[in-house]
């Protein structure tokens, strides 16, 4: 079976004035089919940069990104766009729904951009609306939806083309605790029941605990990985995370 996500030696640099910053440094990561992976790390660790690269929003400076066996780094901008449209689902912290479109229209956006006729998508649309409990809100515009509803629309949009992997950037960041937990439960269900491969960026242990595996980044590098089953309790997970990050800090201090 083709691995949904296979990253090797990924590096990304940015220029800030005269200084070159390595936002990501030799990151290697592999996500199997149906896995739910959370990427954690302190601010500036490179989490968002990793997501940008995995989504094909920007090309890496070094390394390889294979999504379903396709090397994104070697694709042109146009090809990357097509690939992102068809095989990658993106969910953002700020929802990023198009305000002029209804919930239904937002969901269909990537598929329509692909030129697929509406009648072909009806069944899929209905399925997603039902699954995400959006049937009654389908004709509402984003400014009349709650945060949770908006994020569910965003997830539906990300799933309309049946992507190989779902990438989510702090999806609960703009939600209250309860709504956020409901969202995580939903993602967990998608992963377990549908075999969706999900990679989620978060700094919240209460979110990461829903993942199967947690990857910790620090200063652009992957410092540790562990299975969340080792720490089912969010508090213990948080402690573990702090230990990892703290150990790194201590090692730095010693060095």
């Amino acid at each position: 079976m083709v691995v949904p996500l296979d990253v090797e030696g990924l590096t990304k640099r940015f220029r800030q004035g005269q200084v070159i910053i390595e936002a990501l440094r030799q990151v290697t990561l592999r996500v199997e089919q149906g896995q739910f992976v959370a990427v954690m790390g302190p601010s500036g660790s490179g989490k968002s940069t990793l997501l940008h690269l995995l989504a094909g929003l920007t090309p890496p400076d070094e390394g390889r990104i294979r999504v379903e066996g396709h090397d994104l780094a070697g694709l042109s901008d146009y090809r990357r766009t097509l690939f992102r449209r068809r095989r990658i689902g993106l969910v953002f912290q700020a929802f990023n729904l198009v305000p002029n479109l209804t919930a239904e229209e937002n969901i269909l956006l990537p598929a329509l951009a692909d030129g697929r006729p509406r009648r072909e998508l009806t069944k899929r649309l209905e399925y997603l609306l039902t699954q995400l409990d959006l049937q009654d809100r389908r004709r509402h515009r984003p400014d009349t939806l709650s945060g949770g509803e908006q994020q569910r629309v965003a997830i539906a949009r990300a799933l309309i083309c049946d992507p190989a992997i779902l990438l989510a950037d702090e999806p609960t960041g703009n939600l209250d605790t309860l709504t956020g937990q409901n969202l995580c439960r939903l993602l967990h269900q998608l992963s377990k029941e549908q075999g969706r491969t999900i990679l989620l960026v978060t700094h919240e242990p209460t979110v990461a605990v829903w993942a199967d595996r947690i990857v910790v980044l620090k200063d652009g590098g992957l410092v540790h990985e562990f299975a969340s089953s080792e720490h089912r309790d969010p508090q213990r997970l948080a402690l573990r995370y702090q230990q990892i990050v703290g150990a790194e800090l201590a090692a730095e201090v010693r060095a």
Binding site: A55, L57, D77, Y78, T81, L82, R84, R85, R86, L90, F92, N96, L97, V98, P99, L109, P110, A113, D114, R157, C161
Partner: peptide
């Protein structure tokens, strides 16, 4: 700008 970026992110091409 942000909205256009979203459209690009979800898969609309430059031409679109």
């Amino acid at each position: 700008v942000r909205q256009l970026a979203v459209l690009r992110a979800v898969g609309l091409s430059r031409l679109q």
